[in-house]
């Protein structure tokens, strides 16, 4: 049986280098371009036909935009809408690459921890920059939860520091692990179906189809969670300790 981790290995397809920097193309890069192309086509085509009675593409694009807007309003409030371009881009890119990866023979870009890690570091770095820009040195107060008695501070500050540092890691690992695990399970089940032959192979094959349907749901939920957490982290940086009023 084939090694179920084999599909995640990347090999250079075209060797390119720019000023000594290795920018070779591999499958993940190509699929990323496809994802960007598909998402851009859908949103541009859906966005240009501004009819009152929407076309199918337009209503799909509008639904997507309304969904992202709803997430932002829920977690960050009205003034979070200025992050709509960033949050929307993240959601659409992750959703499309999760879904595209489910097509057999394709590749899931989000199953590479490099991709999810860069997204998570970008989001978390932005929240740090935003927090220090808006609140200055007072932003360090995020390490002191409101209502902490003074004698607990030496204990609470390391705990809060760890939970802050864990944010980008859990953001990156969650998406990467869910995507990788799902595809490993699909790979193993399909391998069983192939080796099982006609007599018993139909059983794992049926499971493969059921898992694929489940993976569509997971693709959507993981994109949703990544977006919600992006909004939560940015919102925490914007309203320091103010999230009690903004939480729903």
């Amino acid at each position: 049986m084939e090694n179920p981790l084999h599909p995640f290995e990347l090999h250079q397809l075209v060797h390119l280098s720019l000023f000594g920097l290795d920018i070779s193309l591999n499958k993940a890069v190509l699929i990323m371009w496809v994802v960007v192309g598909l998402a851009a086509t859908l949103l541009v085509l859906g966005g240009t036909s501004r009819r009152l009675v929407p076309t199918k593409l337009q209503s799909l694009a509008e639904m997507l935009v309304e969904f992202i807007r709803g997430i932002i309003l829920d977690t960050m409030g009205q003034d979070g809408l200025k992050f709509f371009p960033l949050v929307g881009t993240l959601f659409v890119f992750i959703l499309f690459s999760n879904l595209l990866g489910l097509i057999p023979g394709s590749y899931t870009v989000t199953s590479q921890i490099v991709v999810t890690g860069v997204f998570a570091l970008m989001v978390y770095g932005l929240s740090l920059v935003l927090g220090f820009l808006l609140h200055g040195i007072k932003f360090l107060g995020i390490l002191v939860p409101p209502g902490t008695p003074g004698w607990l501070l030496p204990l609470m500050m390391p705990i809060e520091l760890i939970s802050q540092l864990a944010r980008p890691i859990s953001l990156a690992v969650r998406l990467f692990a869910n995507m990788t695990a799902g595809h490993v399970i699909l790979g193993v089940l399909f391998g069983l179906a192939i080796t099982g032959g006609v007599l018993i192979g139909w059983l794992p094959f049926a499971f493969t189809i059921a898992m694929n349907a489940l993976e569509v749901g997971i693709a959507f939920i993981q994109a949703y969670i990544f977006t919600v957490l992006t909004c939560v982290y940015l919102g925490d940086a914007m309203h320091l300790h103010g999230h009690e009023e903004h939480a729903h």
Partner: peptide
């Protein structure tokens, strides 16, 4: 809609496991 209780609930629930693990790893 993004306020659908199923998605909000699932989104919240799925987060907790990874949050626990990540904090442990960082600590």
């Amino acid at each position: 809609p993004s306020t659908d209780p199923i998605y909000t609930g699932l989104g919240q629930a799925v987060r907790i496991g990874t949050d626990l693990l990540a904090s442990l790893v960082v600590g």
